[in-house]
Measured scan of single mutants.
Amino acid sequence: SFQYVPVQLQGGAPWGFTLKGGLEHCEPLTVSKIEDGGKAALSQKMRTGDELVNINGTPLYGSRQEALILIKGSFRILKLIVRRRN
């Protein structure tokens, strides 16, 4: 089963996490790295392996390109929903 975790990061880029996968690579869009001391790490809500399913209220369909555009369009606040295996 899965758990959906809301994450809100503040203060602008860099957000402190790296993505891998996506439709382009025929795999889920997941968090591959969280930078020590970065905003994602400080939130204590994101983990490597989390799947990104929503950015700023926009549902994602797995495209890494789409996710990067939405993330780049976030100035002060980035709201994410990640899906994690229980």
Rank of each mutant, 00 (worst) to 15 (best):
S1I: 15
S1N: 15
F2L: 05
Q3V: 11
Q3P: 05
Y4F: 08
V5N: 01
V5Q: 09
P6V: 14
Q8S: 10
Q8W: 09
Q8N: 12
Q10E: 14
G11K: 00
G11R: 06
G12Q: 07
A13K: 12
A13E: 12
A13T: 07
P14V: 01
P14S: 03
P14D: 01
W15H: 07
G16T: 02
F17N: 04
K20G: 14
K20F: 07
G21S: 00
L23R: 15
E24S: 08
H25E: 15
C26L: 10
E27P: 05
E27N: 06
P28L: 06
L29I: 09
L29V: 08
L29C: 05
T30S: 08
V31G: 04
V31K: 05
V31A: 05
S32E: 14
S32N: 11
K33C: 12
I34D: 02
E35T: 12
E35C: 10
E35L: 12
K39A: 10
K39G: 03
K39V: 08
K39R: 09
A41L: 06
Q44H: 11
Q44F: 10
K45G: 10
K45D: 09
K45N: 08
R47I: 09
T48D: 14
T48H: 11
D50E: 01
D50F: 05
D50S: 05
E51N: 03
L52T: 02
L52S: 01
L52G: 03
I55C: 06
N56V: 06
N56S: 03
N56K: 01
N56C: 02
T58G: 02
P59M: 08
L60Y: 00
L60M: 08
Y61N: 15
G62A: 05
G62W: 04
S63H: 09
R64L: 14
R64N: 08
Q65F: 06
E66R: 10
A67L: 02
A67G: 04
A67E: 03
L70H: 12
L70Q: 11
I71K: 01
I71W: 00
K72L: 07
G73R: 14
S74G: 08
S74H: 06
F75V: 14
F75H: 14
R76Y: 09
R76P: 12
I77H: 15
I77Y: 11
L78P: 04
L78S: 04
K79E: 14
K79T: 13
L80I: 10
L80D: 00
L80F: 07
I81R: 01
I81W: 07
I81L: 14
V82T: 07
V82K: 00
R83L: 04
R83G: 03
R84F: 03
R84W: 04
R85P: 15
N86L: 10
N86T: 13
